[in-house]
């Protein structure tokens, strides 16, 4: 054990990063594109805002390459609200992440909603002082992101569709697999850790002419394959014991109504991100408040019924089957 250094503050420790994410539990994080939206979100009771140039539905409609937002917009939003401000970087784009860190955003979302920057790797999030949130479709993706240093996990869902089906799919994939771990012995966990590490191995094989990967082969940044496997086993053991992810787990990608938010909470999410669902609805202020209420009282049907009244038209949703596979945002990253 390291001795405590009284003269030096310890910033960006796992405890401080995961602790920040814990403070968001039971809350709603809202996508906002300007200071006015941010004010509405804060007023409605959001626990944090996600500063963007466009909400996912508009990113989808706009097409082209979606990148980190203009820092001017992020700064304006940071100056407007006193709740935490998050912002998105492209998958693997560690320089966008460095820029956001220097700007002082409170959390970075390494997000499939933006166009991926690195075909091989996600960001090595341990190198950063500020915490990261990352999307996942299943336990494997969640575990890899946690191993890379993510302090919060969210479902990928299918952003910008207003369709909850993918978020539910991903949440169920994660929780069902967590339940499976209960019955798994040491060998089972070992095999699963190997399966979950295979993506790093594949990236290395694509990048080099290496055919066999040994325990001492460096497969990601400075980490040898043996270390990756061992640490992934440790994460799996912890998940097996506590029967949940060791970090806060939010729902995202398709939440459009108070009932959508509440079903995610009942399925085991710790909170929700609402992207296009608020500012693409007919009555953003009312919808925002209603979703906050729904998350706080997710197991009280009376409250859900009451807050669902008179919200007008929710955002116009998209049927997932009508989206060409190459345009599915959830397919980005691994």
């Amino acid at each position: 054990m390291k001795t405590l250094d009284i003269t030096k503050l310890r910033h960006g420790t796992t405890l401080v990063k995961r602790g920040f994410a814990k403070m968001q539990k039971g809350g709603v994080i809202m996508d906002v594109v300007n200071a006015e939206h941010a004010r509405i979100a804060e007023e409605a009771g959001a626990v944090a805002v996600m500063a963007l140039e466009r909400v996912p539905a508009d990113i989808r409609a706009h097409g082209g390459v979606a990148r980190m937002a203009d820092p001017t917009i992020i700064q304006q939003i940071m100056d407007t609200v006193s709740i935490p401000v998050m912002a998105k970087v492209r998958i693997g784009h560690f320089v966008e992440a460095q820029a956001l860190e220097s700007l002082g955003v409170d959390m970075i979302d390494e997000s499939e909603v933006l166009t991926p920057a690195d075909p091989f790797y996600h960001v090595d999030k341990r190198q950063f002082t500020i915490p990261f949130v990352c999307g996942c479709r299943n336990l494997g993706e969640a575990v890899r992101r946690i191993w890379e240093g993510a302090a919060m996990i969210r479902t990928k869902g299918e952003a910008g569709t207003g369709n909850i089906i993918e978020a539910i799919r991903h949440q169920r994939m994660v929780t069902s697999m967590i339940r499976q771990l209960k019955e798994m012995d040491k060998n089972g966990l070992q095999r699963l850790a190997e399966e979950y590490s295979i993506n790093y191995v594949n990236s290395l094989k694509t990048l080099t002419n290496i055919i066999t990967v040994e325990d001492n082969t460096i497969i990601f940044e400075k980490y040898p394959y043996g270390t990756v496997k061992k640490e992934i086993i440790d994460i799996l053991k912890e998940i097996k014991n506590i029967q949940r992810l060791p970090v806060v787990n939010f729902a995202a990608g398709g939440i459009a109504t108070p009932a959508d938010a509440a079903i995610m909470m009942q399925l085991g999410s710790d909170g929700v991100f609402v992207g296009s669902g608020i500012f693409k609805s007919e009555k953003p202020k009312k919808t925002a408040k209603a979703i906050v209420e729904a998350v706080a009282n997710y197991d009280d049907p009376k409250v859900i019924a009451t807050v669902s009244k008179g919200l007008g038209d929710a955002m116009n949703g998209i049927e997932i089957e009508t989206i060409p596979k190459e345009q599915l945002l959830q397919e980005r990253g691994w």
């Binding site: 405590l4 009284i6 310890r10 403070m23």
Partner: peptide, 24 residues
Amino acid sequence: RQKESFEHTLNFHGFSNPYTAVFI
């Protein structure tokens, strides 16, 4: 902001040993 969040030990009145506190 979060970048400046930290953990550190401090003396809490009546405690015989330092206490590790997390500031977020």
